[in-house]
Structure formats: structure tokens, C-alpha cells
Write a protein that binds this DNA or RNA. Sequence first.
RNA 1: GGCGACAUAGCCAAGUGGUAAGGCGUGGGCCUGCAAAGCCCUGAUGCCCCAGUUCAAAUCUGGGUGUCGCCUCCA
Length: 467
Amino acid sequence: MEIFNSMTRKKETFVPLKEGEVKMYCCGPTVYNFIHVGNARPIIVFDVLRRYLEYRGYKVTFVQNFTDVDDKIIKRSLEEGISAAEVAEKYIKEYFTDAQGLGVRPATIQPKATENIAQIIDLVQTLIDKGYAYESGGDVYYRTLKFKGYGKLSHQPIDDLMSGARIEVNDIKENPLDFALWKAAKPSEPYWESPWGKGRPGWHIECSAMSNRYLGKTIDIHCGGQDLEFPHHENEIAQSEAANGCEFVRYWMHNGFINIDNHKMSKSLNNFFTVREAAADYGYETIRFFMLSAQYRSPINYSAESLNQSKAALDRLYTAADNLRFIEKNGAERDMSASEKAFADTFQNYRDRFDAAMDDDLNTADAIGVLFELVRAVNIETAPEKSPSRAFGKACSDMLHEFTNVIGLLCNEKSDDLDAKVEELIARRQAARKAKNFAEADRIRDELKAQGIILEDTPAGVKWHKG
RNA sequence: GGCGACAUAGCCAAGUGGUAAGGCGUGGGCCUGCAAAGCCCUGAUGCCCCAGUUCAAAUCUGGGUGUCGCCUCCA
């Protein structure tokens, strides 16, 4: 598999440190609010990466953290009149509601910064001992100029970074580029005891500490949004490599932004939609489809038109899956015919092309193209006039789901429970149709429609799907 | 100012040297009690512009134009 490595700015063949195993870390949300649609992109994209690596046989250890102590959380706690810990707890819960809706599997480990204070303090102390950090008025800062590779991820010459930061006036730092590892507690702020007095960790040090604790000194993949490249990931490299004396990350992956009216969606610009709002309008899974309809590094524009197109495309997928489910249950009771077997023999071609697309730096747009080519072929081969067999329906269904499981689509399919209720109403409507009582037939159809069930009359019988 | 990304049909979006995937939408058709779905046909002689390299370029090179991002908390 080829991965575009932000560090080298090239696609590189992915070779894990240990054969058959992948250690990956993804920067998780700061839990002070509902996540917005922009936040959802890395969550979805790197969930697909994790699924694909597992599909290819790797044992994946995936760590995604929660930043649950931070200025914004403290601010929020004052606004809401509850403790910072309660704010964090509340929005972690909301995060999981959204993540589950989006079809995102829980990471292997989802640590919180506040569960790792001892590790963070140790790491800060190590950096002080090695001369890479210094205490100043209860704060501890990283001595940026001391780390030779500073700027290597963002490819920024250190002089340019310096000039950009020049305007900052701060007497307690040796250099404007130095960043906080530990912040002294102000009155009424949450704090932990440390060798430098009461305080709390800076943002960047958390990820270094947790990555090291749960995955080790060198990991295979570290991912996040492009805006984390500098300074967050740059700082992580400086911290981890200075402390451990070895390479921190083999492959850096950064996803592109979601735009609104061609401008970055962000909380600071206040032009964002929360996932909760978007899901109310289009459904969670439509958001997931939308995110995967373009390659993860390219910017995508969030608009009603795009989301509606994604919803329509997703419906086509559901229709196909429903048809196959129908055939599995009601198809011809016989072995697969010669032509059915011949078609099943072509599955490997689709698989090869799907894998090739995903191997190419997770080209989900291309992979979805293959998926839809499969859908059309399956629709043709399972047309009612061909009286497809149940075995064939299952074979096609399995193939379809092999792909949709990798990209995490089709996670809201029908249940057997619902089947029974709907089937009964369908039977009553069929009786009415047979008696040419179309008024009653249409009434039942409307009744089901009101419950979100859409009927379709086909030569092979009445099918239905969730609208 | 420094660094970087992108520009493909009405819309979304693949395609990095060999003659334009896929989805949405439009129009027509088959099928149907009607509808829906599905299938077939339809759609860029063309890939922002101008040069150049090549037997061959959306794909490579040079120069433009336009849009966006990072350099500050941010996915």
C-alpha cells in the first residue's frame, strides 16, 4: 500500500515496523462542544484506514485520545456553570453518539489526557533534564531552538517561523517559538501537583505522552487534520524525539479541510455545522458517504447540493442491498446456474480494482466507483426475469458487503423484526390489488410511507425499503 | 513575505504519457393499474489559458490566470 507521507511529501510504500502489525495514533477532539462536520472528516477517513489495514490482514492498534483539559474547556465550564471535568464528560458522551452514528468503530484505546498526568509530568521532567525545556514562573516551556529538526514536518525554515512569531511579546519565554509543556494554574482552574507547582499540561505534550505510553517510542502512522501539522505535530516531534532519542513517526497522514462556500469550516470562523445538525438534515451515513466521495487529502465543499447527491447515491446502494436480501429470501430454490457461477467468478476482478484504489493512498473515491460498477452488474444479473437463485443472491450480497464493510457503509440495513410487520401489510395490500381495490392498496402504501417504508411493485413480488 | 494545495461535463468526482471511471441531475425508451426501483440510450471531439517536449499529454516542462490553505487556538 502507498501512503502519502506529509513528512517527505511523497507517496511511499507502507512497511510497518513489525510485520503484520500497525500502530497508529490519531489526534482526537478537545471535548468542549459538539463536534462539527470538519472534525468528522479525520474521524471517518482514518476509521476507513484502520478498517482497510485490518481487511488487508494487519493487526492494528489504534489510539485516539481525548483532550479533556484545556483553556476552551475551562471557559465552557464557566459558561455552563459546571466543572471542567463535567464539561469533558458531557461532550465525550456526545462524541460517541456522533461517532457511532457515523459508523466509526471505537479505537482500540481511547485515553484521556487527565488519565495520563503522571506520564506527562515524567516526560516534561525528562525534557528538562536533557536541556530541552525550562521552568519559568511555574510554567514549563520547550526550548525550540535546541531541537535541530524543528520545522521538518511543516517544512518551515526556523527563521521564517521566528519572524512570523516576532510580534508576540512574552518575557517569561526565552524565545517566541517556545511553547508551553506545563501551565501554572490560575485561581479556580483545575490543577495537578507537579515539581513546578500546581498546574496542568499543555496541549502538545499530551499526545507525545499518550502515544509513547500506549504505542511505544516509534509508531507507524500518526494522523490528523492538515491544520495540526503546525504547530501541534511539529511540537510532538520535538518533544518525543528529544526525549526518546529516536524517530517518533514513520508515516504522517493529514486530511484536507471541509469548506463552506469555499472557505475552511472552523469553530473560530463560526461558519461550521455540527455533525448533529447535518445528521438531522441528511442522516449520519450520508455525511460519511460525502466524506469518502473524494480523496481524503483534497478539500471538499459542504453544500446542500453535494449532500443531497451523496444521499441519492447512498440510496442506490441500499436499493441494491435490499434487492439482494429479497433474493436471498425469496429467490429460486436451486443451485447457482452456470451463468450465475460465471458472474461470481468475475468478483475477483472487482476485488483487485477495489484493493488497487485503496492501496493508492486510500483513494476511496475510486474505490466507490468500483463499488458502483459492481452494483450495476449485480442489478443486471439479478433482474427478476432471470429468476436468480437464493445462493446467487447470497454470493452477490456477500461481495457487496465485503466492500461496504471496508468503507463502513450500509450499516443501517433492515431487521427481521421489521420484516414481519411490513410483510403483513404488504399481504393485505396485495389482496386489495387483486380485487382491483386500488384505493385501499394506495391507502396501505401511504400508511407505510408515513412510517418511512417505501414499496415497489416488481414482477418478482413486492419489495420495500426504508426511505 | 515564507511554505503548500487545487483548477476535469449542469453538479460532485476518479484518472500522472496511449486517446476521458463512477455518482447525482437532464431528456428519451423498456417495464408498471399508477408509482417506485432497475435496465438501455442520452451527455466533456474535451480536461483554466499560452507556449514547449513527444509518434502520442488531462497527464511531463516553462510561463500565466484564478481559488484555497498553513505560518496564531483550530480536524
